[in-house]
């Protein structure tokens, strides 16, 4: 028997083995969000191609330390959310709520650092109209910032739900839906940070 026929005879895994974690609606929403961010990132990159020296000079003035720390905070929040889901899956509602609280603390840390960063930028005269780079820097990061705010509201809702013991094996849809949204907020930042703060 040759390899091709062996492959053809191997049964495909049954479709029932596949499962999307969370509500289908949130995944369609996530795809729309990813597309919007993708268009923004591409617009930034193609605009930079026409103003390379300006973009590179103004990028150097950004607070890369704060950007990196914020990346670590979002990743840590995502990790805590994963642990919260895992805890709920083993009936550990209390532990799950503690992990979610940890994720919210990280999210709050991100917000505080971002506000500090915006404050410092505004003090230096950065505005939407001060340069093409500043326009993209402010609009891209603020668009993402709004998603972090919504993510925090969702994490708070999950936290209340976890404390009430609402999530357990067989009834995880709500928590998985909220978790998927938070991970999306993390995912787009993983492109935004190197693109806007580092690559030149």
């Amino acid at each position: 028997m040759n390899t091709a026929s062996a492959t053809a005879l191997t049964p495909a895994p049954p479709a029932a083995q596949y499962r999307l974690a969370g509500d289908l609606a949130i995944w369609i929403f996530i795809l729309a969000e990813l597309l919007a961010f993708g268009v923004f990132f591409s617009a930034y990159a193609f605009t930079r191609a026409h103003h390379v020296e300006l973009f590179d000079a103004e990028q150097r003035a950004l607070h890369r330390d704060v950007g990196a720390l914020n990346t670590a905070l979002l990743l840590t929040a995502s990790y805590f959310v994963v642990r919260a889901v895992q805890a709920a899956e083993r009936f550990a509602a209390r532990a799950s709520s503690h992990w979610l609280l940890g994720a919210m603390v990280c999210g709050a840390g991100f917000i505080v650092l971002k506000l500090f960063e915006y404050g410092a930028a505004f003090d230096q005269g950065v505005s939407l109209s001060s340069s093409p780079f500043h326009m993209f820097y402010l609009s891209l990061t603020f668009f993402h910032f709004m998603h972090v705010i919504l993510g925090m509201v969702i994490l708070a809702a999950l936290w209340f739900g976890a404390r009430a013991g609402r999530y357990q094996p067989g009834d995880m849809n709500g928590m998985e839906t909220g978790a998927a949204y938070w991970h999306m907020v993390d995912l787009v930042w993983l492109i935004l940070f190197p693109l806007v703060y580092v690559i030149h």
């Binding site: 479709a15 596949y18 499962r19 999307l20 974690a21 998985e176």
Partner: peptide, 10 residues
């Protein structure tokens, strides 16, 4: 891994 799409429909 975090979004668990490893186990989602292709």
């Amino acid at each position: 891994d975090f979004m668990v799409l490893r186990h989602a429909p292709p």
